[in-house]
């Protein structure tokens, strides 16, 4: 069996288990995120799992932007709602997103600096 197929099967099985567990215990974490955590643990334990997943996962991540296009086109179906509240939505989305990124990045950098937590693996 081609390696790529076993990679896809493994990804889907992890996601399937994630969905079932998330629903079974009504967790706030969605199935795929749960499966991502399980996959990180699995990869740390098994070199084979890592090698199995790597080609498919790299392919998907290289084209991650594409996967958001269908939902994005949904804006067309909501044009009237969006334009009715254009000002509130526009200001709120732009303002809050920019503010949240700045606050998050500044907090990270200041806390890292205060605690002497430098990233020695990254050559600046």
């Amino acid at each position: 069996m081609p390696a790529i197929v076993s990679g896809i099967i493994t990804l889907l099985l992890f996601q399937l288990c994630g969905e079932v567990i998330s629903r079974m215990f009504s967790l706030p974490l969605p199935g795929p995120v749960l499966a991502m955590v399980a996959m990180v643990i699995g990869m740390a334990l098994s070199e084979r799992l890592l090698a199995l997943i790597r080609p498919v996962a790299s392919f998907l991540l290289q084209n991650l932007s594409l996967l958001f296009v269908p939902v994005g086109v949904g804006a067309v179906a909501r044009l009237s709602d969006l334009s009715a509240h254009a000002l509130a939505i526009g200001v709120s989305l732009i303002g809050s997103t920019l503010l949240a990124i700045c606050v998050g990045a500044l907090t990270f950098e200041h806390v890292a600096r205060l605690t002497g937590n430098v990233d020695e693996e990254e050559e600046a």
Partner: peptide
């Protein structure tokens, strides 16, 4: 494919 891609972020 968003689901499998989210799982792929494990990489």
């Amino acid at each position: 494919m968003l689901g499998p891609a989210t799982v792929s972020l494990a990489l």
